[in-house]
Write a protein that binds this DNA or RNA. Structure first.
Lengths: 162, 162
DNA sequence: TATTGTTATACTCTATAACTATA
DNA sequence: TATAGTTATAGAGTATAACAATA
């Protein structure tokens, strides 16, 4: 079977696009790779009607019963107003509940329901499968290096222009 | 069947939030790191009134004179419809021009103007500064590993669930 | 005064269907 | 019929200001 012939008659322009300048930037490669990962994880979570952010949110609530929204927003690096709609969605699906905190009536303590725990267990297994798929070519040492580099970048303060 | 008991009596608040489950995922770390990078590069490009995507687009046009929009969209991994507004923006600012291709009147050949070349030169220097800032703690070997890992992930085909 | 959660809003990014004009 | 560029639209992600209730 032969390649489909792409005819570009007396084309002057290059048939292949050079991205030599962009390729020097690690940030460019990260964006491209992250898009692939994001798409794959969302595909993976689709059967559970979860997205990356709703899965992460549910995970933190499962792991930290009684968490408040402000703490959660901080842990997820999500703005408080944006978290509200995420919490709304999880609560509407009866995966979590907002409980009033008796000692501070401004705040809510967030807890996963039984349904939430169950769904989370299933989704977690699926996400682990996704992770294995995405990083199957990496030995553990390389993956550890990758994670420690990401960790280092994440902790740069906002205005760290030295 | 009884409802799960939701009692969290005299909890003040959890003093620290555990993200132990999420931390096992390289994809989670990548998201967080990429958000930091994205914010920093956009801050860096603000003086030029460019964003990450408009900078990348301008770069490819500078490096590949006469590029067509479909090739560009493919190279940037951006959908064709989304590229149109990006090209519109760059053209409105007189950074690039759409030239008709005489041999194929459906297509445009994209070229940077003198203004576009100049702005790109300045922006490129700034982005190199950003990159040095973000990855200042990495030796070149580690950075090369990072890039090759990202490259590998990026090239996974859409439905590669093995 | 400050904080928690909320509403409203806006801009960006991503994705798909369908149109037009050409090939 | 297929392709290049376009229009329209919709869903997410991200960010800020301002408000009510409470501390």
């Amino acid at each position: 079977m032969k390649k489909p012939v792409q005819v570009y008659p007396d084309r002057v322009e290059a048939p292949h696009v050079s991205d030599a300048t962009l390729r020097e930037f690690a940030g460019y490669h990260m964006k491209r790779a992250f898009n692939v990962i994001q798409a794959d994880v969302n595909r993976t979570l689709k059967p559970f009607e979860l997205r990356m952010v709703t899965f992460s949110t549910l995970t933190l609530i499962v792991d930290n019963p009684g968490l408040r929204q402000a703490q959660l927003a901080d842990a997820l690096a999500v703005e408080r107003p944006n978290l509200v709609v995420i919490i709304d969605e999880l609560e509407r699906r009866d995966l979590i509940v907002r409980n009033r905190v008796p000692t501070d009536r401004r705040a809510y303590a967030l807890n996963a329901t039984l349904t939430g725990h169950r769904l989370h267990g299933q989704a977690l297994a699926a996400v682990r499968g996704h992770e294995a798929r995405m990083f199957r070519d990496l030995d553990q040492a390389t993956k550890d290096v990758l994670i420690s580099v990401m960790e280092g970048i994440r902790q740069y303060p906002e205005g760290s222009e030295t």
